[in-house]
Structure formats: C-alpha cells, structure tokens
Design a protein around this nucleic acid. Structure first.
Lengths: 207, 207
DNA sequence: TAAATTAACATACAAATGTATGGTATTTAT
DNA sequence: ATAAATACCATACATTTGTATGTTAATTTA
C-alpha cells in the first residue's frame, strides 16, 4: 500500500539506510545535502517530507538526526551481499555487484564488515551450509583454527585457517576436500577477512 | 588494559549502549542529562570526557550525537539470552533470568524479539544445532511450516508448526522425534513466537 | 597531607540543526 | 490545459547541541 518513491527519493532513502545501518547514526540534513551535492538543506528537508508522506521514514520533529526507518517495523532490513563464496570449490566474488538479502535486525553491523552467501558444502561439518550468509570482518588478524575468507587466483574460498612452518594451510571441514597449502604457488593469496558469524533466514521451506 | 569505570560512569555507559543498540541513535548531552536528572549538560560532558579518556567511547568533536562505542572494535556486543529451549525434549525457559551472549553487531534488534539458545538436536535436519541462537519474533502469526517456539506445560520447544483439522501438530525435523499433536491434553499450549533466523557465533572451536 | 579525580552545578557562546517561507522550473497527473 | 507533484535554490530564525570556563564539595590517590 506504500506509494512508489521517485528515483531521487529512493537514492536518498538508500543513503539513509546505509548511514543508519552502516554507520549506526542517522545523518543530519546537512550531511545528506553534502553527500548529494545540494547547496541547501531545505532541499533535503523537502525530500524527507515527501519520503515520510509515502511512509518510508518517520521523523521526530525538532530532534537532530530524528529519522527512523519504518522498514524496521517489518523486522527485516535489506543488506547488500557482496557476492558468493565457495565453501567447496573456489567461486568468483562479484566485484561490487550488489544483491541484497533480508537480514533480521539484531545489532549494528560492524564497520567495514560485509556479507557473503555461501555456496557448496565444504564446511558442512562446521554447520555452515549452502545458502547461509556469513558475516565477514576484514579488520581482524586471522588466528589458527578460525574460518576465513581468502582469495586464491581471483576466486574466494571459505576455509579454516592454520599457520604452519611451511606456509599457510586452508582446510575444509568436509573430508571430501583436501587441505590447500599456500606457498609460492599462490602469489595472489590474501586473507579477505574472518567469518565472525553465520546467519540463516527462515523461509517457508526448511532452513 | 582499560581503566575501571566508576559506578556512575558505568551507568552512563550502559545508558549509551541501551540507546545506541536499542533505540538505534546515540543520545545528546541533553538526553543523558534528562535521563539522570542532571540540571546541566556540562555534567554529562565531563562524564563523557572521563569515559572517553578510559577508552570506552569515542567522541566526534562538534558532531551532534557523535558518540561511538569503542566496545564495537571488538565487534561483539553482549545481548541478553532469555533462556534455553529444547529442540529435542522440552526444557524450561529461565523466567526472565538473563544470561548474555556475544552477538556480532549486524543490525538493530527488532522490537520485542528475543534470543534463545537451542539445546538438543531435534532440528538438525533444518540445520539448527545445539548452541545456536534463534531469533524469535513474538509478534507474528504462525503459518504452516514455520519453525515456532511454543510452550507445553511450562516448558518450551522449538518445532515446525502445522495446523491440522484435529488440532495443531508440532513436528521435529529429526525423524527420531515423533510429532506432537496439540489438543485438549495441552491446556497451557501457546505459541511464543516465530523463529525468524538463526545465528551462530564463530568461536575458536568448530562452529 | 597535598594533589588528583570525581561529581555536580552555572553561565556563556559559536556552530550545528531543524524549520518556515518563498521563489523558479520541470515533470507528471487529471 | 490546469493543477499537483517534483526538484532545486535562497534567506531567515529559534533551538539544539557541543564546548569552554569557572565554582564548590567530596572522595580517592600518591
């Protein structure tokens, strides 16, 4: 029953979601104006009024940053998924092609962390299944035994990380897949981040 | 390495966490002053300075509501877990005894929803395992096939919900457990909420 | 004991912020 | 074709907000 937003209104709403969900704090009128290159706050003011009228946000009068997303009443908020990552064989990460998933609102998304959808079954013994969303934090140093997302020749894998004398070993939790030993043969190897959690949304079907 | 906070500083920090995590927006100095009955914002100002000096928050100068929790650098925030719920045999929910779990910050917690830690393996075919945290939304009507948390004689179970002619059937995803048919024999039966998601935090050990 | 920290207050000020009002031009509905 | 909605701008104003500075008193630390 909600009216359609115009393209500009959509982009402003997206910015609001990004800021509120990503940065954790709603922007001021000036922030939004600056981001879109508006010379005036009143322009944003009007857009907010229109977006609120259409029911997508709720403003608390006089309160600085007093913008609430009414989307939240649906208890789900769309979050970008940066790509798919192979738990079995490597799979390319979509550069920054974006595809959203409905994540329940639990707490705030850690800065810079991102989501990847898992494909494949190499982590099934760690209870991570194809279709699960992994929350990846790129700001942590990998420790032995942690599950990491790593790049191997422009493809990404999710495996458990072990530092050994002769290099780094990436092991699957599924015995069908052999461990990969990282040495000179993998010049492009890079740990993208650490899997800090797994989330699975409950659909109509089996989880 | 962080210095201890005084009791008052602790209560102010808790208020900050509540507001930021719960309401989704950091409070202003005036908000905090009002909450604690201070006649003056400068009092709060000083407390913030002290708390920041001890490393618990980070302030962005001149920015309204520019308070960040440095706790977040640990990327985990404690959330209350209301109790444990049996996926196998029923288990009592701790009344409102609270026990916290470190949840990564994903987004904001949906209003009124709560977390339960799953015990037992009756849902293993739905990929929910003992130790997982289920996010329960008490404000949704159960639909056929959804996983619900229900009360049976003061104990709670997590099962899949089906409405049948002769009553309501609660089925486990694990064939070892027989479906429970809800009829007059269960006067205290009540659907507490619907499982909207599963979260698993990645510890040192296998997920 | 002296010095530092804590805890509260008051006042003052510049900047940030939301809001109101009015203007212009374009696009979209009726 | 006329009205309404959209999109942007400018100016003005009252509050809100963060900050600086100073005062007093109790408590803790060196």
């Amino acid at each position: 029953m909600q009216k359609e937003l115009t393209e500009i209104q959509k982009s402003i709403l997206n910015f609001l979601i990004d800021q509120i969900k990503g940065k954790g704090i709603p922007p001021t009128l000036a922030d939004v104006a600056k981001h879109f290159g508006y010379k005036n706050r009143a322009t944003v003011q009007q857009h907010f009024k229109a977006i609120e009228k259409k029911g997508y946000i709720k403003k608390s009068p006089k309160l600085s940053r007093g913008i609430e997303l009414t989307l939240e009443e649906k208890f789900f908020v769309p979050r970008p998924v940066l790509g798919e990552v192979a738990a079995g064989n490597p799979l390319t990460i979509y550069p920054d092609a974006i595809n959203t998933v409905e994540l329940p609102t639990i707490a705030r998304m850690p800065k810079d962390s991102f989501l990847l959808r898992v494909k494949g079954d190499s982590l099934k013994d760690a209870y991570i299944f194809s279709g699960d969303i992994v929350i990846v934090n790129p700001n942590l140093e990998p420790k032995n035994g942690q599950i990491v997302v790593a790049i191997l020749d422009d493809a990404a894998v999710v495996k458990r990380f072990y530092k050994k004398r002769n290099g780094i070993e990436l092991v699957s939790e599924n015995p069908e897949y052999k461990p990969i030993l990282i040495d000179k043969k993998y010049p492009s190897f890079k740990v993208v981040g650490i899997v800090v959690g797994v989330y699975r949304s409950m659909g109509k079907k089996a989880g």
